[in-house]
Amino acid sequence: MEHQNINLKLKVWRQKNSTDKGGFETYDVKNISQEMSFLEMFDVLNEELIAEDKDPIAFDHDCREGICGMCSMYINGRPHGPWEANTTCQLHMRAFSEGETIVVEPWRANAFPIIKDLMVDRTAFDRIIQAGGYISVNTGNAVDANALPIEKAKADASFAAAACIGCGACVAACKNSSAMLFLSAKAAHLNLLPQGQPERKTRVMNMVAQMDKEGFGACTNTGACEAVCPKEISITNIARLNLDYTCAGLVSDK
């Protein structure tokens, strides 16, 4: 592909802190290489803002290779931008054309309060994992990997669910701000394996209770979460969770 530089207009959400009302500001970004990543374009803009003695735009990022789950921009009405199975950091400027206006918003959900500009507080996800997204094992030497046979299909499904990076795009895309795709992925990757069985029932009950406490909405199976997930987590995991939850609720002692 031929190298090209483009000029763009950015409409970005600016908000000083969690209590500020916030609003959109428009920036002209010039001479942007189409080989840049979306975040590199923001770096260029921020350098300019700093040079002008203005407050740079705050946004979350870390690994910039699509595995840490920190980047979280809602670009032109879609979490992580226009590309499929992609994080914001992996989005490149060749996805846009000369003169285009790009609207960048933070994840919007009451459970993800804005810290500043495009940064949101996603610690609600951490608390959901703490509620049950773990297994308890005895310390000591690790058990030989081949000592416990696991069906290939289940191992694959578990691995696919474990690919969740906890970025929150599912919540951002969902009309109900539901965290069910995240929660179900975190539950399924343990529930599908033998190691996850002892805590299977308490896991789903506690994780759902924590999700509700955090203020996420209920799942209505629209599929918007699956469509934007950078790791292509399947909503089949939500059905798995629903069944686990129902069974746990029906057989639990209290």
Binding site: G77, R78, N110, K175, N176, T222, A224, A227, V228
Partner: peptide, 23 residues
């Protein structure tokens, strides 16, 4: 469910990820 997002998006995700009747 509607109350879970106090501030709405400026650009809606719309039909790109789900069917209108599902929403």
């Amino acid at each position: 469910n509607r109350s879970k997002r106090a501030i709405k998006y400026d650009v809606a995700f719309g039909n790109r990820g789900s069917k209108w009747y599902s929403r």
